[in-house]
Design a protein around this nucleic acid. Structure first.
Length: 512
RNA sequence: GGCGCUAUCAUCUAGUGGCUUAGGAUACUAGGUUUUCAUCCUAGAAACCGGGGUUCGACUCCCCGUAGCGCCA
């Protein structure tokens, strides 16, 4: 679709939807399709609708529906009509729309645009195999199309299993895709399409067409895996006299091997990304940039700016590999933008989950301003936690990394190999002397002067005296953290406090 | 097998016939910023699938290959 056409869309006119099947978690592909639909609706001041496609009774579950709703909400995608909130064009679950479908299936039957087919599965299958073997497209022969009305009645009465087929007219279907421009299909290759399993159970394509019509959907924005469905749906729309919505087929999100992203690639659900410590804003920003960008060099977008900048003609045609490394970078970026308060709030559940701390409940059973360090039983204030977490703000890629990064703050005694204390190849004795000296210096500092600034000034002066700064800074830092990589010794010592710092220095002697 | 879609650095992408020695970001490499890690800064390496056209001129338009992917109820 050209830009000109887009300008013709008047506000409020656009109605788009996301129609997930509740047969599993909300995955990245669905989330991205939902996001683009949402952005398009918001951009044009239209409506975004959630429809649950639960016609597959066997695999559809209410829990999944709930998870999908949760996931979308968490991402900041909101709908104005859906199974949870209702709306003027409901119900919004396909399983509750059987009567509506029935009306249209009967109509097609009555108008002789569809017919009962009593062919057996085996018959159909062998036919398909044969056709494929001789290089023909597999399609139905049309055998039952010529069944006499009496015969049909007879079979129906005898409860012979059937399906309902559409009399596919042979023609060229050409449609304009908003992303790909012209797409052409020859329907003669389809054969008579199966449209329903019973009078009330339409198959996917028919149900979709009926729902989209009944819900007044104006633009169908979905994955490109639906391109082959589109001509079939257009055929049904024509047969039923429905107006044709505009179509936009989004490129697929690919795994590292360039095939459709799936569990096989370790692709996880939105819920799991959330658990793993990804921020909703990082995830939406990142997936928006998968096959879309505004044509500028800007890469950071909040939801409102996404809505502002979004345009369908800026969507890419080719598939995009889901590159988790860049997501990690972006997540780190968003983490760095957070206020210490917010970041702490986000991180605490991870510390609690790893049994490092637990909230001290207040009278009403609500978490208060204090937490208990589980290993030592000490009390720690929210403010102090905030300081600890802030220390790692710029090192964090995912919230879930916070326990492993900060665990030494919540330990009594640290355990580490004595080799870790060694700077370059200096001897144990020298390390010991250095640490002794540091301890001596530190113990002279009064508690009220125990600030990062003072510690830095005093110890840096000492380190410079020695010449090789690492000689004193490295073993100090390891003594305090037990880690080969961590935040700096002064910051850590400041948070630890005088008493605990000296205690850890003592412990390092024992190790040597 | 049939039909369809796609094709710029490793990856996400800018580029809509001359503005391009093809730009940005991530990742990578090197250097710098108080020991390590991270952040940040600087620099570097890194791409137009192939072949034909069209044109004064093609990454950009057309055709044919090739490859990848999707769908087949």
């Amino acid at each position: 679709m050209m830009e000109e056409d887009l300008k013709l869309i008047s506000p409020g006119e656009v109605r788009v939807r996301i129609a997930p099947s509740p047969t599993g978690h909300l995955h990245i592909g669905t989330a991205r399709t939902a996001l683009f639909n949402y952005l398009f609706a918001k951009k044009h001041e239209g409506s975004f609708i959630l429809r649950i496609e639960d016609t597959d009774v066997e695999r559809s579950k209410k829990e999944w529906e709930q998870k999908i709703i949760e996931g979308l909400k968490w991402l900041g995608i909101e709908w104005s009509e859906g199974p949870d909130i209702g709306g003027d064009y409901g119900p919004y679950r396909q399983s509750e729309r059987r009567e509506i479908y029935s009306k249209y299936i009967q109509k097609l039957l009555k108008e002789d645009k569809a017919y009962y087919c009593f062919c057996s599965k085996e018959e159909l299958e062998s036919q398909k195999q044969y056709q494929m073997s001789i290089g023909e497209p597999p399609r139905y022969s049309g055998k039952c199309q010529n069944l006499s009305p009496q015969k049909v009645k007879e079979y129906l009465k005898a409860k012979k299993p059937f399906i309902i087929r559409f009399k596919t007219p042979s023609k060229k279907i050409v449609f304009q895709d908003m992303i790909r421009e012209k797409i052409e299909f020859d329907t003669a290759l389809f054969g008579d399409l199966c449209i329903a399993k019973s009078l009330t159970d339409p198959l996917y394509n028919l149900a979709c067409v009926i729902d989209d019509f009944e819900m007044k959907i104006t633009h169908v924005i979905r994955g490109e895996d639906h391109i082959p469905n589109t001509p079939k749906q257009i055929l049904f729309q024509e047969a039923l006299g429905f107006p044709q919505p505009k179509f936009a087929h989004l490129p697929l999100i690919l795994g590292p091997d360039r095939s459709k992203l799936s569990k096989r690639h370790g692709a996880i659900s939105i819920t799991e990304y959330r658990k793993d410590g990804y921020l909703a804003e990082a995830l939406t920003n990142f997936i928006a940039l998968l096959s879309w960008n505004p044509g500028t060099e800007r890469e950071v977008f909040s939801m409102p700016s996404l809505i502002k900048e979004f345009s369908i003609e800026k969507i890419q045609k080719s598939g995009a590999i889901f590159n988790i490394t860049k997501l990690d970078w972006m997540n780190g970026f968003y983490i760095r933008q957070k206020s210490p308060e917010k970041l702490t709030e986000y991180c605490i559940p991870y510390l609690v989950e790893k049994n490092l701390i637990e909230p001290e409940l207040e009278a009403e059973g609500l978490p208060g301003q204090f937490y208990k360090i589980i290993e030592t039983g000490e009390k720690i204030s929210l403010k102090r936690l905030e300081k600890i977490i802030s220390l790692y703000q710029e090192r964090l890629k995912k919230l879930s990394e916070i326990p492993e990064l900060t665990h030494f703050f919540f330990k009594g005694k640290l355990e580490y190999d004595k080799e870790l204390l060694r700077w370059k190849d200096i001897e144990d004795k020298e390390i010991k002397n250095i640490l002794k000296k540091v301890k001596k210096i530190l113990s002279k500092i009064k508690s009220e002067n125990w600030t990062e600034k003072n510690l830095t000034n005093i110890l840096m002066a000492e380190a410079d005296k020695i010449g090789d700064r690492g000689k004193i800074l490295w073993p100090l830092r390891v003594s305090l953290t037990g880690e080969k990589a961590s935040a700096g010794p002064f910051e850590v010592a400041t948070i630890l406090g005088k008493e605990k710092t000296l205690e850890r220095l003592n412990q390092s002697y024992d190790i040597l």
